[in-house]
Computed example of a mutant assay.
Amino acid sequence: MSSEAIAQIKRELLVRHLEAWAPAALHRARRVIYVHGYADATADAAMRVLAEQSDLVRGRELTMLAIGDDLGEIGPRLSAIAGQSGAGAGLAVHTIPGATEKMLPVGLKAVGAQRVPLLGFLDAANAHEPPAPATVAALAAGKPAEVLLILPPGSGADSYRTGWPLFTQVELADSDEPGELLVFGATGGKSLESFKEALWAVDEFAGVRYRDPGDPDRHLIDISLTPHPGPLRRELLAYLERTGSRTVTELRTFALTETVYRAADATRVLHTLVDAGTVAREPSHGRLGGDVVISVQA
């Protein structure tokens, strides 16, 4: 797998999500915190996005907390970018040298991250060991809170669900071999929708594609604004077979939270399944609204 292509995907996804998250968070609250663990050169790109919010920062506090083993060059660069932004004291950078696993809870306490809008980015794909679930759950102290966590190939993500009512995952891959696992947790539904929009909007790099961890066929999906529906079709049908009939709203929620797809993708797939006679709907006619009940044809 091309490590550079994977790095570009992760960087663009972070930037796109930050560009949506930062202004929304600053409109919502006077204090906003972004946490960048395992800090490396990607932290520069994140800081540039935050520096672009200079007009919104005035009269508010936007804080970046960077944590990493080697911040020797990174820290001064982040401070320089913040200083050139024109945001003044409203945009602050705090750096904490040391292992993210150990220092993250300390840093959150130091910057007063309780009950303020908070986004955490933890790229642990090349860490000596993945962070403990309790470390990631500490970020849920924000209100609302989000975390973008990246784990090494072959990792499992279910242990990280604690503290995150909304949770999804996607694999970055370019072959049949396991790829890095991208995990997103949130305490609010709009956050998850925003992440999914960013996920499918990134540019494809050097053949890197997505794989839905819930797809038993491990189908590779091209990154596209209109992704291939095959894996979602299989997962929706399997879900209906396991659980019986479900409303369109419930199926949209399943797609959003339990697959790599968006709620709107589920609506498109359901239309094709109904038209093909693969599933039945009740009532049998009219708009495919949220209260329409879907079941597998006997």
Results as ranks from 00 to 15, higher is better:
Leu237Glu: 14
Ala80Asn: 08
Glu250Met: 14
Pro216Trp: 09
Asp215Val: 05
Asp215Pro: 04
Ile67Phe: 07
Thr100Phe: 06
Asp44Pro: 01
Leu78Val: 10
Leu240Trp: 12
Leu118Arg: 01
Val147Trp: 03
Leu181Cys: 04
Ser224Val: 05
Val260Met: 15
Glu193Ser: 06
Thr259Trp: 12
Pro23Glu: 08
Pro117Gly: 02
Val49Gly: 04
Ala124Asn: 03
Val49His: 02
Ala24Phe: 05
Ser284Arg: 15
Ala51Gln: 04
Ala43Arg: 09
Pro105Cys: 09
Glu177Asp: 09
Thr135Ser: 09
Pro117Ala: 04
Val111Trp: 07
Val106Met: 13
Pro283Leu: 02
Val116Trp: 04
Ile74Tyr: 03
Leu13Val: 03
Glu101Trp: 00
Ser85Ile: 03
Leu288Asp: 10
Gln114Ile: 00
Thr162Ile: 15
Val15Met: 00
Leu236Cys: 13
Gly37His: 08
Glu258Ser: 15
Pro229Trp: 03
His27Ile: 00
Gly86Gln: 00
Ile9Asn: 13
His228Met: 10
Val260Cys: 15
Leu240Thr: 12
Pro144Gln: 01
Leu56Val: 00
Thr135Phe: 01
Gly120Glu: 04
Ala43Asn: 08
Gly230Pro: 00
Gln114Glu: 10
Gly290Tyr: 09
Gln297Ile: 12
Glu101Cys: 02
Ile223Thr: 08
Ser191Arg: 07
Glu61Ala: 14
Pro144Gly: 03
Glu282Leu: 07
Glu52Lys: 09
Glu235Asn: 15
Ala20Pro: 00
Gly179Pro: 04
Asp212Asn: 08
Pro97Lys: 11
Val15Lys: 01
Ala145Gln: 10
Ser3Met: 11
Ser191Gly: 15
Pro283Glu: 06
His228Pro: 06
Lys143Pro: 00
Val35Leu: 06
Thr243Lys: 15
Gln297Trp: 01
Pro283Gly: 05
Leu118Met: 03
Gly90Glu: 02
Gly207Phe: 08
Glu193Leu: 02
Ala124Met: 04
Asp69Cys: 08
Gly83Gln: 01
Gly185Asp: 08
Leu71His: 11
Leu122Tyr: 08
Ile74Arg: 07
His17Leu: 06
Pro144Thr: 01
Ala22His: 03
Arg287Gly: 06
Val260Leu: 14
Arg252Pro: 00
Glu52Met: 02
Ala173Trp: 01
Phe254Trp: 08
Arg48Gly: 02
Thr168Pro: 03
Met1Gly: 14
Leu50Val: 02
Val106Asp: 09
Leu26Thr: 08
Val35Gln: 06
Val170Arg: 01
Arg28Tyr: 06
Pro117Lys: 03
Val292Asp: 11
Ser295Gln: 13
Leu13Tyr: 01
Leu78Arg: 05
